[in-house]
Design a protein around this nucleic acid. Structure first.
Lengths: 107, 107
DNA sequence: GACCCTATTATTAGAGC
DNA sequence: GGCTCTAATAATAGGGT
């Protein structure tokens, strides 16, 4: 098992890619939540599967995180920000969940 | 070293929390990029440090990822979406960077 | 898809520089 | 902040149920 050192490039085999997506996505959300909890900070994570499913994790509420993103963008606008044209981000959730939420797409 | 099983709760010691933040943040961004590359998908990651610094990673461009987030929200609005009031997300970058970008805050 | 298992790699806490 | 080192835990590829 774990035959090779897992080269980081697109997995060509579809089935293997889907399995890896499922496993690593869960690991990534876990890590995001751990970072948020351990360090008492805001984290927002948005992941799209190739089949169109949406996964997101807000540490507080997505709204709060993205609002801070917007404000921060404004504040640093005159400084060393590498990309300037960041614009408004508005996003809110009825229930700011503390756990990863899966939103199923139509297909 | 690694004396304990790293309980996932806020690290009370400030210095230790900052060190952990630095290490785990880098790990998280790496994982996000790996997932994006391996599975050929879009990932958006936004992290705020306690001191106000902003870190984000867009797999393609933050704009593209968040636009898909917006569209997906609309599409699934009538289905089993657990939180309905997700609203518009607008965000664009002049240069859609492929690598994590650090935007320093004013302080 | 969700789990379980296990060998192996990857990450990281704690320390020093 | 950065980087290095090491031991220990964590994550995971590949397989199965």
């Amino acid at each position: 098992m774990v035959r090779q050192k897992t080269q980081i490039r697109k997995i060509e085999n579809l089935a293997a890619r889907q399995v890896t997506f499922s496993k690593r996505r869960r690991g990534l959300f876990k890590k995001a939540q751990e970072l948020s909890t351990l360090c008492d900070i805001d984290v927002a994570l948005i992941v799209f599967s190739a089949t169109g499913k949406l996964f997101h994790y807000p540490s507080s509420s997505m709204n709060q995180v993205l609002e801070r993103h917007r404000l921060q963008s404004e504040n640093v606008g005159e400084l060393q920000q590498p990309s300037r044209e960041m614009q408004v981000i508005v996003c809110s959730f009825a229930s700011p969940s503390q756990l990863p939420v899966t939103v199923a797409a139509k297909n």
